[in-house]
Write a protein that binds this DNA or RNA. Structure first.
Lengths: 237, 237
DNA sequence: CTCCTCAATATGTCTATACATAATAATTCT
DNA sequence: AGAATTATTATGTATAGACATATTGAGGAG
């Protein structure tokens, strides 16, 4: 049953997707193993592996050693979000970027922050608040805590001219992070800084980054009203 | 300079990341080609390719044929968001899922919808609004348009018992999509349906899916106040 | 000087083979 | 029977070699 029309891993990926959509392989079903598929498609196992691995990364199928490969029961679509540095985000809008530091102090983080920034022991932290502007208009209000145990070099910076995110990107590596997105009503302070009304719906992004299990920084970014984030599903943009 | 300590593509990825963080290869710099790196690390070129490809997918480096590989100038962090079917989202919260269709009609989409759902020609579309509930409490208000030229089978469905998203996932394949996230103030209608106050900050997700260049459906999902989306940066969750 | 063609080059992919690893199934021991 | 050990199996990964493909840059024609 060697079919010479499937030569590239992309074409194999397409054929597998077709069978899933056509319900030849319904959700939850096991699909043949790589060796059998390679024989059927008339290609090397590595090529089948490449195709199936890509589909697994996209969340369409689930793979486990020995257990085999099965079609995902609930096709979780996995979207990728590009999160640029704010300076770039502003530049992409064709506006001029400006940055203003509002406050800067070493302090003991409040419990809700400490819980995530230093869950194990009490830590010293740097608290920085700042405003990012797009052509003079408030764009993002940033409220950031930096764990000085993980990033001691940050203590030497006052972040008046250099924004904290860019400095950290350049000087403190991180291995992984977590981002929480939500909609929240503007507080009195946030409304004043962002020049909007208290209660206005704000897009809020909370970022917590880690370096090999050690928390680096927790940033809360409040976007001015009207901000949108665009992400993509599937392969092509 | 063959260094036998780099055997797996993961270890090579780590080493490349280390050099990027250590500024041995600063942002924007070209990095050696695969063949040279393979020689340096004492491994096969395919192994280096695997490592670099993963880094490129993560947005850390940029690769172009002939031009070579360079460290990304602006380290856009690329986060992956898992977007489950709402039924699963509710189930994951330990609540019981319920679905209620509110309206259903074939109609000519308003211009702002038509612009995205059928940019080329006027099209017939199906308009469905529905409410998703978690343990009886309004969870998501859905306002969806379905392009009947792309998905004619949808015209036979009334979506009273089957929710449109799940039916579409099961019957109409899509190749890619776009998701827009924003925070918006609840309108009168939205507030009434979601049992909240007009002006309350709502997390809004607009999804537009395509099948080979043909728009399938445009869905606007308004989450009840308090909803958060969590995403991950880097490899490990 | 500009446009075009062509060769050089780095990444992209495929193949065949081999071994590693995780997880299950079968078997043996207590 | 129940626990511990071993075998089996499908995926995960590494390798060397080959060819494909996109781009760039140089050289030549107009």
């Amino acid at each position: 049953m060697t079919d010479p029309q499937f030569k590239t891993w992309q074409s194999i990926q397409d054929e597998v997707l077709r069978r899933i959509h056509a319900r030849e392989w319904p959700p939850g079903a096991d699909i043949p193993n790589e060796a059998d598929l390679a024989r059927e498609f008339g290609c090397a196992r590595a090529t089948v592996n490449r195709a199936l691995r890509a589909l697994a990364e996209a969340g369409m199928i689930e793979r486990r050693r020995k257990a085999g490969t099965r079609v995902a029961l609930h096709p979780v679509s996995r979207a990728t979000v590009d999160i640029p540095v704010i300076r770039q985000e502003v530049a992409a809008l064709g506006k001029t970027y400006d940055y203003r530091r509002l406050s800067h102090a070493q302090a003991v983080p409040p419990t809700n922050v400490a819980q995530r920034l230093c869950p194990d022991a009490p830590c010293t932290a740097l608290h920085v608040t700042a405003l990012h502007l797009a052509s003079g208009v408030p764009f993002v209000f940033e409220d950031r805590w930096i764990n000085l145990d993980t990033a001691p070099a940050a203590a030497t910076q006052d972040f008046v001219t250099t924004n904290a995110n860019e400095w950290l990107l350049a000087h403190v590596p991180y291995t992984h992070g977590e981002i929480r997105l939500s909609a929240e009503a503007a507080s009195e302070d946030e409304a004043r800084v962002l020049r909007t009304d208290p209660g206005a719906p704000l897009f809020v992004m909370e970022r917590l980054t880690w370096d090999h299990g050690r928390p680096v920084t927790l940033a809360r970014l409040c976007y001015a009203p009207g901000h949108k984030i665009v992400t993509h599903l599937g392969t092509a943009p």
